[in-house]
Design a protein around this nucleic acid. Sequence first.
DNA 1: GAGTCAGTTCCATATTGTGGAACAAGACGG
DNA 2: CCGTCTTGTTCCACAATATGGAACTGACTC
Lengths: 271, 271
Amino acid sequence: MMKQDLPDISSSAFAHNSGTGTLGKVLSVLETVVTSDRPLRFSDILALSGQPRGTLHRQLSHLVEEGLLTQGRDLCYEPGLRLLKFAYRSWSKNQFRTVAAPHLRRLHEETGETVHLGVLRGTEIIYVDKVESRQTVRMESQIGNASPVYCTGLGKAALSVLPPERLADTLSQLTFHRFTANTHLSVASLTRDLDEARLQGYAFDREEHETEIRCVAAPIHDAGFDLVAGISVTGPAYRVTMEQLENWARPVRQVAMAISEDVEIRLGPGR
Amino acid sequence: MMKQDLPDISSSAFAHNSGTGTLGKVLSVLETVVTSDRPLRFSDILALSGQPRGTLHRQLSHLVEEGLLTQGRDLCYEPGLRLLKFAYRSWSKNQFRTVAAPHLRRLHEETGETVHLGVLRGTEIIYVDKVESRQTVRMESQIGNASPVYCTGLGKAALSVLPPERLADTLSQLTFHRFTANTHLSVASLTRDLDEARLQGYAFDREEHETEIRCVAAPIHDAGFDLVAGISVTGPAYRVTMEQLENWARPVRQVAMAISEDVEIRLGPGR
DNA sequence: GAGTCAGTTCCATATTGTGGAACAAGACGG
DNA sequence: CCGTCTTGTTCCACAATATGGAACTGACTC
């Protein structure tokens, strides 16, 4: 019985397995399935989750029964429709996004390039909205997507305003992965970058996440740092030089501050 | 202790409370919060859920801890970012949607009006994709949204192909709500409409959900009826006459059949 | 037809959730 | 200013629920 026969987790993203009891475990399973790139069969999940067969089987059954997962013809588990339903509501009702939306549009008109709005969540930036230059790509783009903090302009902007102890905490949880030649790979090099961003009030992404993609981002946050986010202007390297980005830094920062104020006023003086 | 002191549910959409144990209950809570129109405080949820205070409190805490909900300044609970993250993945990976996408585009080019793709889930149609005439509205539109089966073209198209016993089952679960003067309000009148749709192979929405909005829809399904869905062309009444819809019926139906085939071939011969 | 490997089912056990009640902390309101 | 709601949070004995080892099915291989 004891839980120490699988004393720690060998495999994957199973870390925070505590506090929320049953729910946490089930969500871990859900997350592995949903965030995996390829369809997973029972045994795949079994390996990833490190849970006993019987347990996992019941968890998956429940998830399917609840519509959060679907089990397709090939016995592969896929995200279910109920998730979509949840998502639509979460997005369309998101107050922060609603407040920020007009500002995004303004910034887009000023720069002509793609504008992103992202919120810090743990060690990730979640994209909650964007305005695109041309409607080439649609929703698939970014919304709801999560990127690591350490290689995105938004991420670095957000980190740059965190109170020291929370920053330290976040940094300690990072695991680096090289996306491009410019990706930060250590807390040390990232910290230098953050120091610069903190002084300037904005951060760059110098092709650190994707080659040929650059951006400037500025931080947004509320008084209590309950909400830490950022706004950015992104463009392809061939069209957007670093000089261009430098010029956009000021407007981006101003818009970010405007949003911060709006948040404080319109969602604000409670807490 | 016994659970029979609140023997039935007075308030709201708390019905299927069984089978999945703890998870089901927590998800019910999540759903009430997410689908509510206005922000909910603890007591609001308490009233809606009909659960004991202590229990509900813990459930909400866990949901917050897991990032599925956020508790804002005013103590109101709102959908959390993790939901968005989940959703994005579910959508972008959805195989059915991916397979159908090119067909949607084709149908849009042919008609010039908005094309929707929706999947049947219980008594609802969930919109999983669309191609719009003009990019006036963005994601907020429909994707992930759920509409009742009985008043949408997609819903009726989907119902029209269900095997009799499953249809009966679904019909018995319907509760009608008048959206417009044309909304079906009884199983009888809906059934007549479905019979017609079954014969023709396509269904209309004659301003039954929203006034001034019409559509034609055709059903899509796989061999085992695991997937029942539909595709539709929608337009404003001032621009799209019923004659026009009649003319589009054939192409819509053909595209629907093409998708059905594609599904069978590309996701198919396993099960 | 013995041997894997993937998926499913079972059941005694103990972990986890339950819900009544008591406790804080505001917000009236007289 | 002191009772008195109303709202949110905490506690804890108890019971429902999840757990996980083992045994079972069945398909595919050699």
